[in-house]
């Protein structure tokens, strides 16, 4: 079994669906951080069978608004003094830029390279977003 030291201050993203850790690592741009970051893949899990884990040391203020879209099962553990001080299940963000593409062929984003893809949450329960430009709905 691989061992990674516990962190004193930082964030642990737990219960990431196995195989999804690398994408989350990239979407959060963790490769550019100066403090240590560990990506553990295919870790045995009683709950999931296998899971990925990301340990980010040295910060508590990461923008994690995308997490619920990338993997709704994630648990975010905030660590201070080596102890978990808060556990959070991320909520769907009200506004998403860049993660979702509009599927409407008549939408301006289909032809305009400069159009940043923007979606706004319209129904939290059904995880439904609407394209900021054309209004097309998408369920994530």
């Amino acid at each position: 079994m691989l061992k990674v030291d516990r962190i004193e201050l930082g964030i642990v993203l737990d219960h990431i669906r196995a195989g999804n850790g690398l994408r989350i690592f990239e979407e959060l741009d963790l490769g550019r951080r100066e403090s240590p970051v560990a990506l553990l893949m295919s870790v045995p899990s009683t709950k999931l069978g296998k899971k990925d884990i990301i340990k980010i040391s040295g910060a508590l203020d990461l923008d994690l608004t995308k997490l619920a879209l990338l993997d709704p099962g994630i648990t975010v553990n905030y660590i201070e003094g080596g102890e978990v001080v808060r556990k959070v299940r991320p909520e769907l963000p009200q506004r998403v830029e860049g993660l979702i593409r509009c599927k409407n062929p008549r939408c301006i984003t289909a032809v305009e390279p400069s159009a940043p893809a923007i979606f706004e949450l319209v129904e939290r329960g059904r995880k439904r977003y609407r394209c900021y430009y054309c209004g097309e709905s998408v369920t994530v």
């Binding site: 008549r106 939408c107 400069s114 159009a115 054309c134 097309e136």
Partner: peptide, 25 residues
């Protein structure tokens, strides 16, 4: 002709923008 074109244009326009019709929207 594209839906949402005016919404995009308004983001970039330094002056007031009026939508004179964007696709079927």
């Amino acid at each position: 002709p594209k839906e949402g074109a005016a919404r995009l244009a308004a983001l970039y326009s330094p002056v007031p923008l009026i939508n004179g019709g964007d696709g079927a929207r």
